[in-house]
Design a protein around this nucleic acid. Structure first.
Lengths: 205, 205
DNA sequence: AGTCAATGATCGACGCGTCAGTCAGCCGCG
DNA sequence: CGCGGCTGACTGACGCGTCGATCATTGACT
């Protein structure tokens, strides 16, 4: 018996397909990915792709999930080891800066997922699932900071909305190559939001 | 002689094509728009579309420009009539809230344009052109407010980065149907940024 | 151990729908 | 008649999904 029910073939090959798929989506864009391309990268055939997934859209949708789950898990593993809430929040910000191919590709996926979700409301539940996980991560860190007595007693949800909105907005500017936004600028933008809103002594300049 | 050189056919029909094209892009997404669809809405044929534009991509790219130019012009017309810088900035925020089909569709275009720009660096100049116009609009209003003595002497560029990032981020949440962001929430988020950063007396709660 | 199905996994060529772009000709007006 | 504007049937490419064939592995039975 296979451990997970209803999945044909080997889990290793299945993951290889998803891995190849999301990388391709990130680099070329959802609509420019060919089943043939995924197959070529995996060193397999188009027939095999369809053996594991009913259709192209299924491959790509599962690839999205795969990518997001991976990213969350990676972040979680790092953040759990940091006890101080403020340091943990700064670490979260750091992990989300689009530096390196991996994180940039993940942001590329996000941008595309937004567009697709706007046009196809059927994707909203999936999107909201991911999004809620992110919001929860932020709010739980802030509450921890409040319990630790290092953060002010602000409206946690409102703060999370601000921080996540600014994060998305800043990431867009970097990814699209806006001239006035760099990774350093993004970091200081987000850190200063944290300081202004949460820190006990509003940074005296 | 036609007023603008090198353009075949009537300007009216040309605009009708662009108008139909950008609406379709906003509603269905760039990659789901068929030349046939644009033609049908204009009450014309696919041949005519290709009579006015060399290829599909040219139609869609020009449609994007058309949409953005229109939006800027509409905003400018309203904003120029408001003398007080603070009221003008609030009006700009109001005009950018995704209420109504028109503005929602314009945001839909933006989201798609971001994705496409990330994947295809050739679009960056066009994107940056639009983006710079928006940044300039914000910075000039803030400087006006500083001259009028109603805004503090903050780093104008940094403020513009913050406000525009938050605007983009909030709009994404609304368009994608995130549960915790409504038009009202977005307005208060942006207005409170303006108050906290620019207003002389940091709102005493 | 050796034989032999049976089942699972993989391959790759082909069918068929879709769609951008073309082209030969039509229409109406000056 | 001549020309600018327009038509829409047609073509050719492209890419998804299918399907019969092939290879590998397993496990039952002798």
């Amino acid at each position: 018996m296979s451990e997970t029910a209803g999945l044909r073939g080997s889990a290793a090959r299945r993951n290889a397909i998803l891995e190849a798929a999301w990388q391709l989506i990130a680099e070329r864009g959802y609509h420019h990915v060919r089943v043939q391309d995924v197959a070529r990268i995996c060193g397999t055939s188009t027939g095999t792709i369809h053996y594991y997934f009913p259709g192209k859209d299924d491959v790509l949708q599962e690839a999205l999930r795969y990518c997001v789950d991976q990213a969350f898990e990676r972040q979680g593993a790092v953040l759990r080891q940091i006890d101080n809430a403020h340091k943990r929040l700064l670490a979260l910000i750091e992990l989300q800066l689009p530096v390196g191919v991996q994180v940039r590709n993940e942001w590329s996926i996000w941008l595309q997922f937004w567009s697709e979700t706007v046009l196809n409301p059927a994707l909203r539940p999936i999107h909201n699932d991911f999004y809620t996980r992110w919001m929860d991560a932020v709010t739980s860190i802030v509450r921890r900071g409040q319990r630790q007595g290092i953060y002010r007693d602000v409206d946690v949800a409102a703060f999370a909305r601000l921080l996540t909105s600014a994060t998305d907005g800043a990431a867009i500017k970097i990814l699209t190559g806006a001239p006035d936004m760099t990774v350093d600028t993004m970091r200081s933008l987000l850190v200063s939001i944290v300081e202004k809103e949460l820190t006990m002594t509003p940074s005296v300049v």
